[in-house]
Simulated assay, not measured.
Amino acid sequence: MDLDSNNHSVFLLHYHLILVVKYRRKVINDPISDRLKEIFEYIQINYNITLKEWNHDKDHIHILMKTHPNTEISKFLNAY
């Protein structure tokens, strides 16, 4: 297990984020998922987030991400 550290702390923060399409409509296919992942990877650098796993189905996306304690998840999600 790889632990991250700051000057005075050691941490390991993972978030499991599930994004669901409104009314669970089946609109996510491989090209759409790839584009969403591309956008996620472009934005994650500014928020100290590392993408660990990305999976999708036709109506939702599962994201496993690793963050730092100073990461503002709500601001990241608004940017995304």
Rank of each mutant, 00 (worst) to 15 (best):
I32V: 15
E41N: 11
L51E: 11
Y42C: 06
L51K: 07
I63P: 02
L19F: 15
L17E: 05
N29Q: 10
P31N: 09
N29W: 02
E38R: 03
D30I: 07
I28A: 11
V27Y: 05
Y42V: 05
V10K: 06
K26G: 08
E41G: 04
L13K: 04
N78S: 15
I39W: 00
K22S: 09
H60Q: 12
Y47L: 09
N46I: 00
I49R: 04
N7G: 12
D59K: 01
L3M: 15
D30N: 11
I18R: 01
N46D: 15
L12M: 04
I18C: 13
Q44S: 13
K26D: 15
T50I: 10
L17D: 02
H60Y: 12
H16D: 08
I43P: 04
H8G: 07
I49Y: 00
T71M: 01
V27E: 13
E53W: 04
I43R: 09
N78Y: 09
L12Y: 00
Y47G: 11
H14R: 04
N29H: 10
I61P: 11
I28T: 10
S74G: 12
Y42M: 06
H56F: 14
N29K: 06
I32A: 12
L13E: 03
L77Y: 04
I63L: 06
H68W: 03
I63T: 07
Y42D: 15
L3Y: 14
N7P: 01
V27T: 12
R25A: 09
L13P: 00
T71I: 05
Y80D: 15
F40D: 13
L19V: 10
H56G: 08
Y47F: 15
I73W: 03
L3W: 13
I28L: 11
V20S: 12
A79M: 12
S33R: 01
M1P: 11
T67P: 02
Y80R: 01
N70R: 08
K37C: 13
H68D: 11
I18P: 09
I45D: 14
L51Y: 08
V10G: 01
K26I: 03
I73P: 05
R35A: 13
I49V: 14
N70Y: 01
N55G: 14
W54K: 02
H62C: 01
I39D: 10
D30C: 11
M65E: 05
D4H: 10
Y80A: 05
K37Q: 13
I45V: 15
R35H: 12
N78T: 15
I43Y: 09
L64E: 03
Y23S: 12
K52Q: 14
H8Q: 03
V10C: 03
I49C: 06
S33I: 05
W54I: 04
L3V: 15
K66T: 07
K37E: 13
H62E: 13
K75T: 10
L77D: 07
H14N: 11
I32N: 06
D30W: 01
H56Y: 13
V27F: 00
W54C: 07
H62W: 05
